[in-house]
């Protein structure tokens, strides 16, 4: 049958080619495709009901000086197997990893080291550094890595709770306490949400006048993203806040809005950007987060931070934010006042 069809097709083709000449296909000039951010598939847990059931207050340490080997079940366990710290790893001045050496550096890495020194006061500081294992925490997923009842009930089955503490510019919010069963330490950093955009926006818009109608990127599951929406901006959530800088550089968003310390890190990496502070009036405080039940660990962390309040933290601020920094360690909010 194919032979017969072929004969017919041949005749048709001959007839058609005799009277019609197809034009040459037009030369395409497509636009450049945009890269795609990691998708937000495993949705963040639903916001906790208002008002807050848990507490954002922290526990007073037993002493401000660490003299002996700390006690408690969690600390003993950590001493046996090493300290697992969740860090952002992509936030310039807070924590970033040198990929060739594997070394993590930044204010938060220094704080993690001080905490590790308190857990192993009997060891040489060089050995203590080897006891820390840093785990990268994409902004959205930071809190699901804590070993809490709330996280075990969460639907994301692939997520294995593995870190002892999170030192990743985590703002103290009640929602995080209620949703993830987190407990916060003494705050180690005061931040204010700012806006970062290109240095010179062609006069099309003035970032000081607000972000209404503008595409603004921020980390998914953060308080920053809600504030963008509240101010009329089109919030673009990113799994990791640093993806926002890629988005800005690729002209996929018009601005990034997150904590000023992170924006400073972005500006370090791309001098073609400018920071516009004062996006919001609220001040956020960042603290170390641990699982609710690990009170012994929290006491050690608070003891370390209270000790650092007496000068060491200021030195670290100058080391990471410049000599002229005016940052001061925020006051602690202890249970029972």
């Amino acid at each position: 049958m194919t032979a017969a069809r072929r004969l017919a097709a041949l005749l048709c083709a001959l007839a058609a080619s005799a009277c019609a000449v197809a034009p040459r296909a037009a030369l395409p000039r497509p636009t450049a495709p945009e890269p795609q951010m990691p998708t937000l598939t495993s949705a963040a847990p639903a916001p906790a009901p208002e008002p807050c059931r848990g507490t954002t207050k922290t526990i007073r340490p037993t002493g401000t000086e660490l003299t002996g080997i700390p006690s408690g079940t969690t600390v003993a366990e950590i001493r046996a197997r090493g300290l697992r710290v969740g860090v952002s790893q992509t936030a310039g001045r807070l924590s970033s990893r040198n990929l060739q050496t594997g070394e993590v550096s930044g204010l938060e890495a220094d704080i993690a080291f001080e905490i590790a020194r308190a857990i192993w006061p009997d060891r040489d500081p060089g050995q203590v550094r080897a006891q820390i294992q840093y785990i990268a925490m994409p902004t959205r997923d930071r809190f699901i890595a804590l070993d809490t009842d709330e996280n075990h009930r969460a639907p994301s089955a692939t997520t294995v709770a593995t870190v002892d503490m999170i030192v990743a510019d985590a703002s103290v919010t009640c929602q995080r306490v209620d949703t993830y069963g987190a407990r916060f330490s003494v705050p180690y950093l005061e931040t204010r949400q700012g806006l970062l955009t290109w240095r010179g926006t062609d006069g099309v818009w003035d970032p000081r006048q607000g972000v209404a109608g503008k595409r603004v990127c921020s980390g998914a599951g953060t308080i920053n993203i809600d504030r963008i929406t509240q101010r009329g901006g089109i919030a673009v959530p990113a799994v990791d806040t640093t993806d926002c800088l890629v988005q800005l550089q690729r002209h996929q968003v018009e601005a990034v809005s997150t904590d000023d310390v992170i924006l400073e890190g972005f500006h370090d990496q791309d001098p073609n950007t400018e920071i516009f502070p004062g996006f919001v009036d609220d001040v956020d405080v960042a603290a170390v987060a641990v699982a609710r039940q690990d009170e012994d660990l929290l006491r050690v962390v608070n003891a370390v931070l209270e000790r650092m309040r007496r000068g060491e933290m200021d030195a670290l601020y100058r080391k990471w934010f410049g000599q002229a920094t005016t940052r001061r360690m925020p006051p602690a909010d202890y249970e029972g006042g």
Binding site: P30, A32, P33, E34, P35, Q36, M37, P38, Q89, T90, A91, G92, S96, R97, N98, L99, D240, T242, D243, L245, V246, G265, F266, D268, Q269, D270
Partner: peptide, 30 residues
Amino acid sequence: SLLPIYTGMVESGWVYTSRVDPVGTSYLNE
């Protein structure tokens, strides 16, 4: 059309990571 965009992102990622700029990891991941 995707190939040059991909290549550009990888090369950007390398430059940033060699300067120990964390955005390099984001470029490589994306």
